[in-house]
């Protein structure tokens, strides 16, 4: 089946089976490998992307069910200048770095809904994203730091 998806503002085609998870369309068909595979069962959050500004697990979303504009880590900003990307660099968050695209996309969705989340909210909203290296304290701090800046660009919520 041919599917046309809007990914990072571009219209892209993929010829895949209807049950193919968005994750594998992004990674194998569209060569957008920033979105990661960690578990394939919705448990780790490594595959988190935004659809119309809301975080979803791309491994649990068949391509046939994708309605709306997809934003991946590659499209969060043009130049790595999204406040979350900046905060992640400034606080030197990553260890291995493998979870961080998913963490940032979950955080983008959170900040879009709640521009100044407290610790409890961050903990609740981010607990679907595993960091096997244990960088959670820096992730939390980076979200607070980014929350001090305005969120705009493709990572911002879509007004409907």
């Amino acid at each position: 089946m041919a599917y046309t998806l809007t990914v990072n503002g571009r219209s892209l085609d993929a010829d895949v089976a209807a049950d193919t998870p968005l994750l594998w369309v992004l990674r194998d068909s569209l060569r957008l490998t920033g979105t990661k595979f960690g578990c394939g069962v919705g448990q780790c959050g490594a595959c988190t992307v935004l659809i119309d500004g809301r975080a979803i697990r791309a491994c649990q979303t068949p391509v046939s069910a994708v309605k709306g504009r997809v934003t991946t880590i590659e499209g969060l900003s043009d130049d790595g200048s999204h406040p979350l990307q900046r905060a992640w660099r400034e606080l030197d968050v990553p260890q291995c770095g493998y979870c961080q695209a998913g963490q940032i996309m979950s955080a983008a969705s959170l900040l879009a809904r709640n521009p100044a989340p407290d610790d409890a909210t961050i903990d609740r909203e981010m607990s679907g994203n595993i960091c096997r290296c244990g960088t959670y304290l820096r992730i939390r701090a980076a979200i607070h730091q980014a929350a001090g800046s305005a969120v705009s660009g493709p990572g911002a919520p879509v007004q409907r």
């Binding site: 490998t33 979105t35 968050v93 770095g97 695209a101």
Partner: peptide, 20 residues
């Protein structure tokens, strides 16, 4: 303190891992 040299690539989703 020197930040991780791959941080810019990691936070923008560039292919840095072997899976990519």
């Amino acid at each position: 303190t020197r930040a991780g040299v791959d941080n810019p690539a990691i936070v923008t989703g560039q292919p840095v891992f072997s899976i990519d």
